[in-house]
Amino acid sequence: MTPEEFNIELYWSLIDIVNGLLTGSVIGGYYAMISIGLAMTFGVMRLVNLAHGDFIIVGAYLAVVMLNFLPVSPFFTLIIVVPLMFCLGYVLQRVLINHVSVQAMERKGLSTNYGLMAPILVTFGLGIFISHLLLGIFESDARQLKNSLAFSAIRISEDLNISLLRFIFFVIGVIILIALHLYLNRTHAGRAIRAASDDAEISPLMGINTAHVYGLALGISMAIAGAAGVMIGMIRTFQPFDGPQFLLIAFGAVIIGGLGSIVGSLVGGILLGITQVLAGTYFGPSAQLVGGYMLILFVLAFKPQGLFSR
């Protein structure tokens, strides 16, 4: 190997690493959007929401419906999809999940172990119901939210590009995280959510209506899931049964970041993204998912409470 060849070799391995870090981080922002909602409902009310991935897909299909009537950029569908998903989440929590929640089971005097199972089973069933409902309405054709930015890239150097859409989603993901943080720490409703999350038994004694607070929490979780769904629909195709794969990503980010930690889900998402891209670069595309799961296993083995657990 001549010195020149060596330099080229070095250059490309550097590009690989920088690309892995950049693309991985950007993908991580998008993973964070997928997982914040899951982290939030778990953190606030210990709800393991197995329908979370299906909610994401619902968001994407709501955008499909809207774009049928209004041929605008998919970004504009967020104006309708996000509030609509919030309302759906609020109602769902109040009419269904509050009655089968861990807290409801505890009130009925059932043990916590048993109580944890009820909402898991209910959301599992809800996920199956939603995906079949979507199949019934939209059939199994793969859909996409067409947009002009799908193939645009940000060029950092001659050999280094990142997808513009993914970067936009990263920015939106970070903005959502900051907004959520401010909401939880600066507003009355946010304080009530934190109090209810801290102690569900005491909060009512402080005048907090936990049924309402939990409604808000699932509403926010679903609103963010809806936004994530719209973005996923802009990057790739989706089908009614795609929910569980997003649920898995969300679980991954949440496990790495720490159950119930919102910042943790961003860091967890970024670590997961970087690991996947680097594993893909060095060991081939099939190693991407394996690499991600290895990281999850590693965290579970050595820091099972997650990196940012409260």
Binding site: D198, D199, I202, L205
Partner: peptide, 26 residues
């Protein structure tokens, strides 16, 4: 209002925030 034998503060909030939640909602 009720207090508990084993105190149950909202542990992730400051004393002021604990009282603020109580004052605002209760």
């Amino acid at each position: 209002a009720r207090t508990y034998q084993v105190p149950k503060p909202f542990t992730h909030m400051t004393v002021f925030e604990n009282l603020k939640v109580a004052a605002l909602f209760g």
